[in-house]
Deep mutational scan, measured.
Amino acid sequence: GTEIELESKNGQREHYTATSEDEARKIIEKAVRRGIKRIELRGASEQLIRDMQEIAKQIGLQYRTDGSL
Rank of each mutant, 00 (worst) to 15 (best):
G1C: 14
G1Y: 13
T2W: 10
T2F: 13
T2A: 06
T2C: 12
T2Y: 12
E3D: 08
E3I: 10
E3G: 05
I4G: 00
I4V: 04
E5F: 14
E5R: 13
E5S: 12
L6N: 01
E7H: 10
S8G: 10
S8L: 15
N10K: 05
N10I: 05
N10F: 09
G11C: 13
G11I: 01
Q12I: 09
Q12S: 09
R13V: 11
R13W: 11
E14S: 09
E14F: 14
E14R: 09
H15E: 04
Y16G: 00
Y16H: 05
T19Q: 13
T19W: 12
T19E: 08
T19H: 14
T19P: 06
T19K: 11
T19S: 08
T19N: 11
S20G: 05
S20W: 02
S20M: 02
S20H: 05
E21G: 04
D22K: 08
D22Y: 12
E23P: 01
E23N: 04
E23C: 07
A24P: 00
A24T: 03
A24Q: 00
A24D: 00
R25T: 02
R25M: 07
K26W: 11
I27N: 00
E29M: 14
E29V: 09
E29T: 09
E29K: 06
K30Y: 14
K30Q: 13
V32Q: 02
V32W: 06
R33C: 14
R33V: 11
R33I: 10
R33D: 04
R34Q: 11
G35K: 04
G35Q: 04
I36S: 03
K37T: 09
K37M: 13
R38S: 08
R38V: 06
R38D: 01
E40W: 15
R42H: 06
R42M: 05
G43N: 13
A44P: 03
A44S: 02
S45K: 02
E46C: 15
L48R: 00
I49L: 11
I49T: 05
I49G: 02
R50V: 06
R50Y: 07
R50M: 07
M52C: 07
M52P: 00
Q53F: 13
Q53E: 13
Q53G: 06
E54Q: 10
K57M: 10
K57H: 11
K57P: 03
K57T: 10
Q58S: 11
I59D: 04
I59M: 15
G60P: 04
L61W: 10
L61K: 04
L61F: 12
Y63K: 06
R64D: 15
T65C: 15
G67K: 04
L69P: 08
L69C: 14
